[in-house]
Each structure stands twice: as C-alpha cells, then as structure tokens.
Design a protein around this nucleic acid. Structure first.
Length: 423
RNA sequence: GGAGAGGUGGCCGAGAGGCCGAAGGCGCUCGCCUGCUAAGCGAGUGUACGGGUUAUACUGUACCGAGGGUUCGAAUCCCUCCCUCUCCGCCA
C-alpha cells in the first residue's frame, strides 16, 4: 500500500510509474475522495471540540435546569456529528479500497517494458547438457519409473494434483531437507513451520487481498484461506509490531505446501508437475532497514542460486521488467532452470524486494534506537526453491537413455546414499 | 462443543457515568549524589491525524480487545463479535 501523504504530494510521479504496469487506476477519484475526506474531518472535529467543551461545562453545573438549553443543543450537535462521521467512514473506506488496489510502484532501474519479452537476462550459470538421445519430459520419466502418478491423483482429487510414490516421494522430501539445511546452516535463516491457513488480515498484509481473492482456496467457516506461498505467513509474523533496530535484518525460511487456484491458466502446462493446485516450496523472507533492502535482495537471490549450483542444474537470472513484475514487488529477479525435456528455461524462483509496501499494509515497523520514531521496515521474499519444479529439473537434466535418473551428489546423503533411480 | 474468569500505556495494576490520556508501581531517559557497583534523590516519559511556530511552546480530534447502542457526556452501562486463561467433553 502506498502512503496516502506520499501519494497526495507525488500524484504525477506515481501515476506515471503505475501506467507502466497496466494499472488502470483512476486518480481523479482519489483526489475527489481525499479532498472530501479532509473537508469532513475538519467539520466533524470542530463539532466534537464544541461538544466536549459544553459537555464538560454541563458536568460541572450542579443545577441541570440552568443548562437545559445547552443539553438540547448538544443533542442536535451529536446527531450532526453522527451524520458527518458516517459519511467520513464511507469516504475513508473507499479511499482505503482504492489504495489497497494500487500495485507497488517499481524501483528505478527496472527494465522498461510491458511483458515477458522485455525482461532482461542478468547472467546464466552452467551449460545445458548435450544428450545422445532425445530427452523426455519429466512426466514420462516419472510415470515410467513409477514415482509419479497423475492418474490416481486425478481420481483422488482432480486435475492439477500429483501423487509421488517411493523414490519420488523420497526425492521431494530430500530436496526439502537439503534446501532447509543450506539456508539455516549456511545462510543464517531461522526455520519456521507456519500455519498453512491464514485469515483475511494476513492475506491483506502481503497483498493477496483484496485484489486476488479468486486465485485463493478459501474455507467458509471459519473464514480462512489456504496459503498460496509461505511468504504470506512469514511476512505477517511481525504484523502490527514494532521491532528493535538490532533485530534487523531478520531472516526466516520455511517449507510449506502452497495452494493456488491457477484460475485463467487453462491449457497451460496441463501435464506434469509444473503447474499444480498444490505444490511444495521452501521460501525465504527477510525484514530489513530501508537502506539495505537493495543489497539484501542480491544476497537473497544468491542464496536461491546456491541451491541450483549445488545440484549442478543450469539456470539463468532474469530482471523482470515493469510490466511483468508482481503486485507487491518493487523489483523482482526470477531464476529459470534449464529443462531439457521442454528445451526451455522455466521459472523456479522469484526473488522480490517489496520495500515498504507490505510493511505499510501489515503495519510492520522498527525503531533505530529506543528513542527514535517507528519507521516501516522493508520486506523481501524469494523461493529457495520451488521443490516440485526442482524435482522436475533433476528428472529431466539427470535422465539417462535407459530411463533411469542419476541422483545429484549433493542429495545423496539425503537419499540414504542412493545414486540412481531406476526400475 | 459445555461452564466460568478475564482483555486498561513498554510491562504490572487501579479506576465502575463528568474532576480520566487514565492513580500507583516497574522499566526507560535526563539531572543530582556516590572510590567502582548497587542503592538513594529530583524531573520527564504513549500513538496517530490536524492547527500553530524558523524551531520550541501551545493547541484540536481520536485511541482503555473490535464493532455497534444508550447518554448533553462512556475505559465505566447495554448488545454483538474476537482473543486469552481455568475446568469438563472430544481428539493426533
């Protein structure tokens, strides 16, 4: 969410920035609401001052018959205050709705552009391997090895769910442990197991609500949502809190399943593990002081890249352009892993600096010293990594002509020493 | 799910229609005192949004879990909801 004062004073800058992001917000509505709000606030405060003054006077007067007229007059003043307050409340909630719908302006330095085509490659690591045979897609490899079963998952639930079995399930679990160990033991993250369902306030804090409710799985009673990413609970851990300066930066990592409706993606990635309603992810979230968030984003990105380096999977890093960047982010780098079965790089991590956008929504602040005024923290998040897609990358990159799959060295200690998955 | 007790400043805790932004204590800040430490003494100490000032001072409004209601006036009375604790039931 944007600071209303900042927006008021920098209307044109914000308008210009957001116009690069396909936002069609109508700022004339904002200006009208804002001036009405100030008008009402002034009027109602004036009346309240009058009411407080006269009421105190009435209180001090022993003989109430002397102030009968004042009491009658205050009755009317009270009614008028009530009327103004009701309108004020309406205007404020409309303003709030407007602000909550506005995306985060993008950072200076973001590539300009409207869509995927204008994203910029920052670097790449490793080279796609040459195969003496035609590499198969992971769903064929997995089904042939009996470690992935999409048909039965469909029976149990429906399309876009997966059942892992035997070495497949073990491999997924190995990846989770491998990633968590790396981030906790070498990258200084605190491991967390958060709730997988959260309430409306939490979803609003990170920006999923109110705009993207249709992407979320929801329970009616109670009114909860399944998390679409651990970013949601992790970033909301300190919602409504004021942190001490020495608590920052603070790093959290968590493994969680993620639930997404994937509405509007019919026909896209219908086979395999790439796009599911439920998938596993290890997430990293940081809180830091404003002037350090740029550097923290680079470190976060490096932490995610390290996973792929250790698994020896070729990847590239993409700097998302203004038009492709997500709602809450000011800057985003995606990591795309090479998938031989598809002959393409596919997203496996997305690392974002949300600056104070989520902190303002979720009211997460800090004091530099105990005497200082609270300021909003900056929040960052990144996948480290999407576990299912990492398993996809392993199956496709480590496949052999006979259909077996070699286990990357780094994972073998997590696989009880297993070196290859074969029939 | 049933019964009961609660939610007040950074923390503890009093207040039970007007003199309450809220006693007292702890903590914290500043000053004094003191070989050091501890103790002691004095003063100050919430947030948000406005007005005002070069800046202070000063000043208006709101905030006692949340939202409604009664009243000239609500932390205080009434209603609804949320949360915490204790006991019972159920359960991994």
């Amino acid at each position: 969410m944007l600071d209303i004062k900042y927006l008021r004073d920098n209307l044109d800058t914000v308008k210009e920035n957001l116009s690069r992001q396909k936002s069609n917000a109508d700022f004339s509505v904002f200006s009208a609401l804002e001036s009405r709000r100030r008008e009402l606030l002034g009027a109602t405060e004036l009346l309240k001052a009058e009411k407080n003054r006269v009421s105190a006077l009435i209180g001090k007067t022993k003989d109430k018959s002397q102030v009968r007229g004042e009491i009658e007059r205050m009755k009317e003043v009270s009614n008028e205050i009530k009327r103004l307050d009701e309108e004020l409340k309406r205007v404020e909630s409309e303003l709030q709705d407007f602000l909550l719908q506005l995306p985060n302006p993008t950072e200076e330095g973001c590539p300009l552009g409207c869509g995927e085509e204008e994203n910029a490659e920052v670097r790449h690591w490793g080279a796609p391997k040459q195969y003496s045979f035609s590499p198969r897609p992971h769903w064929e490899i997995g089904e042939n090895l009996g470690i992935l079963d999409f048909e039965r998952a469909g029976k149990l639930t429906g399309a876009r769910f997966a059942l892992y079995r035997g070495a497949g399930a073990r491999l997924e679990r190995a990846l989770i442990n491998f990633m968590l160990d790396l981030h906790t033991q070498e990258h200084n993250y605190i491991e967390v197991i958060p709730p997988f369902m959260v309430n409306r306030e939490t979803m609003t804090g990170t920006g999923q609500l109110p705009k993207f409710e249709s992407d979320l799985f929801h329970t009616d009673d109670p009114d909860y949502f399944l998390i679409p990413t651990a970013e949601v609970p992790l970033t909301n851990i300190h919602r409504g809190e004021i942190l001490a300066g020495d608590d920052l930066p603070c790093y959290f990592t968590a493994y969680t399943p993620c639930f997404r409706k994937e509405a509007g993606s019919y026909g896209k990635d219908v086979r395999g593990l790439i796009r599911l309603h439920q998938f596993n992810k290890v997430e990293m979230v940081k809180y830091c002081i404003p002037e350090e968030s740029g550097e923290e984003l680079q470190k976060l990105l490096a932490n995610a890249e390290e996973v792929l380096k250790r698994l020896e999977l070729p990847y590239r890093v993409i700097d998302l352009c203004c038009g492709d960047i997500g709602f809450a982010a000011a800057r985003t780098f995606d990591i795309e892993v090479w998938l031989p079965g598809q002959g393409a790089y596919r997203e496996i991590s997305s690392c974002s600096n949300c600056r104070d956008f989520q902190a303002r929504r979720a009211n997460i602040r800090f004091r530099r010293t105990p005497q200082d005024k609270p300021e909003f923290v900056h929040t960052l998040n990144g996948s480290g990594l999407a576990v299912g897609r990492t398993l996809v990358a392993i199956l496709e990159n480590y496949q052999q002509e006979d259909g077996s799959v070699v286990i990357p060295e780094a994972l073998r200690p997590y696989m009880n020493g297993m070196t290859v998955i074969k029939n």
